[in-house]
């Protein structure tokens, strides 16, 4: 922002008052809808997938179909129709009080922005594997990479997971990566090395967030782009669990009797006089 001493301190805001400047594109009525320079109706509709459009709109980069296919399958991997999963349960709870679909799905999506699973893990997973690669290039051993992190009482982002050990999604997506013709890149390679090391040492292994972050780091993705692309990561599972609960009788999703909540607070007492 250019400024000089005579400019008021609010000049920056005045420049944006009643004006939108977009690099993304927009609707020119009677002309076209533009997405990063492409005419949507002429260049994109029927020619690219929704996932290609998602990445284009988010980052300005139009990925090839194989990468979009990989991303689409990556979304599928986090879309289990199991309402015990936290984000799915929230949508099911919403369905059971007959909340409208958009509110319920939004609630589930928001819940998934968590430190234990979902899009909330992307930033720490990316940071870890990117830093680990740099540290390894500087000569650190796998043992040092892991100890540096765990020794500070930090968990190892992208490795181990709640509820279960092992992660079948990694196996499936590793297979798909090769089927789509992607070679193993340096981040993926290091992530798999760490996983093998942890399996031998602690019986833990890479989780899906860790694999996804490493693979996509090799494809040139970084934060904040990746966190933005993955915001709806869990959506299809959330949709499923909302739909089932909303179809069932209101209140029939895991109903609780009063005694199903254990009260642990102070004993009943009288309200003091004002």
């Amino acid at each position: 922002m250019s400024s000089n001493k005579t400019d008021p301190c609010w000049k920056h805001w005045d420049q944006h008052r009643n004006k939108i400047t977009s690099n993304k594109g927009g609707w020119k009525i009677g002309d076209a809808v533009y997405n990063h320079g492409y005419s949507m109706m002429d260049d994109l509709i029927g020619q690219i997938s929704w996932f290609q459009l998602l990445v284009l709109n988010t980052t300005g980069r139009l990925p090839d179909k194989n990468l979009a296919t990989w991303l689409e399958n990556c979304f599928s991997c986090l879309s289990w129709p199991d309402s015990r999963i936290w984000c799915n349960q929230i949508a099911a709870l919403a369905g059971s009080v007959k909340t409208r679909p958009v509110a319920a799905i939004s609630a589930g999506i928001q819940a998934s922005d968590a430190l234990l699973y979902g899009p909330g893990v992307i930033t720490p997973c990316l940071k870890f594997i990117q830093q680990a690669r740099e540290d390894k290039n500087q000569g650190q051993t796998l043992f040092e990479l892991i100890q540096n992190r765990q020794g500070n009482n930090h968990s190892l982002p992208g490795f181990a997971r709640p509820i279960a050990k092992g992660d079948e999604r990694v196996t499936a997506m590793y297979r798909l990566s090769r089927e789509l013709g992607f070679e193993i890149g340096p981040h993926e390679s290091l992530a798999l090395e760490i996983s093998e090391y942890l399996t031998i040492q602690e019986g833990e292994s890479i989780n899906f967030g860790g694999y996804m972050a490493a693979f996509l780091a090799d494809q040139g993705f970084s934060d904040p782009d990746l966190s933005r692309i993955m915001a709806l990561w869990v959506s299809a599972g959330v949709h499923a669990c909302y739909a089932e609960a909303a179809d069932n009788t209101a209140g029939s999703y895991l109903p609780l009797q009063c005694q199903d909540i254990i009260y642990t607070g102070v004993a009943p007492r009288d309200l003091p006089s004002p």
Partner: peptide, 10 residues
């Protein structure tokens, strides 16, 4: 998210 759940019609 909780208020979204609260928005239900039953």
């Amino acid at each position: 998210l909780s208020l979204n759940v609260l928005s239900g019609e039953q």
